[in-house]
Design a protein around this nucleic acid. Sequence first.
DNA 1: AATCATAATTAGGATACCCTAATTTAAGGA
DNA 2: TCCTTAAATTAGGGTATCCTAATTATGATT
Lengths: 226, 226
Amino acid sequence: MSAISITSESTEMYLKSIAELEMLATPPVAISHLAQRLGVSSPSVLEMVKRLAAQNLVTHTPYKGVSLTDSGRRRAMAVLRRHRLWERFLVDTLQLPWESVHDYACQLEHATAPAVTDALAAFLDNPTTCPHGNPIPDAAGAVPPNRTIPLLELAVGQSARLENIIYEEAILLEYLARRGFLPGVQLTLEDIAPYQGPLMVRVSGFDHPAALGREIAARIFVVPTE
Amino acid sequence: MSAISITSESTEMYLKSIAELEMLATPPVAISHLAQRLGVSSPSVLEMVKRLAAQNLVTHTPYKGVSLTDSGRRRAMAVLRRHRLWERFLVDTLQLPWESVHDYACQLEHATAPAVTDALAAFLDNPTTCPHGNPIPDAAGAVPPNRTIPLLELAVGQSARLENIIYEEAILLEYLARRGFLPGVQLTLEDIAPYQGPLMVRVSGFDHPAALGREIAARIFVVPTE
DNA sequence: AATCATAATTAGGATACCCTAATTTAAGGA
DNA sequence: TCCTTAAATTAGGGTATCCTAATTATGATT
């Protein structure tokens, strides 16, 4: 059977998910967060985490959570690279809709031999970001330094440029795109309603500010501008 | 987890392999042939075949072998379609070497959503054959009528055009390509050595005929010409 | 310090899909 | 008819990866 891949699909999904969750909050990553993200039960996560720990891909601190080792991080970055390259290809080359490509890429990323990854990157002229603005790790797994802050932490009245969206659910991406929230747009945080209320954000070229929930605003990353 | 695919990779590999073996010999396909092709043991094949039979994808005649149901064949054709589209993409678009793409396609075929298949086919302008000349089933699973015969059955002295090669091992494909055996070439069967000996085949543009073993000649399909 | 709520962990179970060894069956030849 | 060989089948086992129910640990609150 075509067992070219040494790393199982599940292993790759666990490593990738830990890496993604580490971008949203400080490690170690909670078992229940991982379980939620992967759509499996906590005991399943725990068992897989123990297996990954035995392979020195993660370190598990009991009752605290799980974090990637260097080796695990390299693996995760390789998966993210493939994921985001495929997303680029699906949007730019195959013209599939922006908000729909995450799941397709999620399948393809585990089925891509190194030679295919390299050739795909070359064909795409080595893009640096996925369609959602997230950086594509280079072939060595390196990601450029992160100068962004979550929109949630932008000062009221401050302008910024939208860099990336770490949230790939199709319905949300479609919602955001319809209100102009796309990588590269200029926006201004006009107001934050009290009591953990929504943020009023004006996207340049739009007449009215959009209201964003805090959870979404925490996953939109911006670079402040003058 | 990204469980978009309803059919497991193993199921797809079994169905595809049965379909391929049915092209080389009369059904039912022997358990041991299937085991050899898939690189697993006979009891494993038998158990999977029973499982596939329970899903009405194959019919298993005890001690005789296994054949595809209509439903199973449709599934197999869909896998073959994806396999051959990816081969086309890998060779034509990513410029990967002709003899190396089979394994890569073998991975990708199980990780391709319907929408991606359709978009890929459109991008490739709906090719009708893979790089090895094998027909690409259309979206409904149909394959054009087969007018070919195995080179092994060509009459001595007869000329023919090479249509397709049903044998995707990299070393052999490289060997064949170096001797000019590519889809579309004109060739002549000059001689067959006695006692199941090799065939002497002259490929147009080459000074000397090449000697081919019978097993290989049985997998090269040609259309006789005047 | 005691209590409560939440998260993590343990215990036991299931399935897909693979394995080897032993036994049975079918086909061909003497 | 009997024997041999090869293939198919049965029997028992393993692993990755998932599940639910029950128990334990942790942190916050009273």
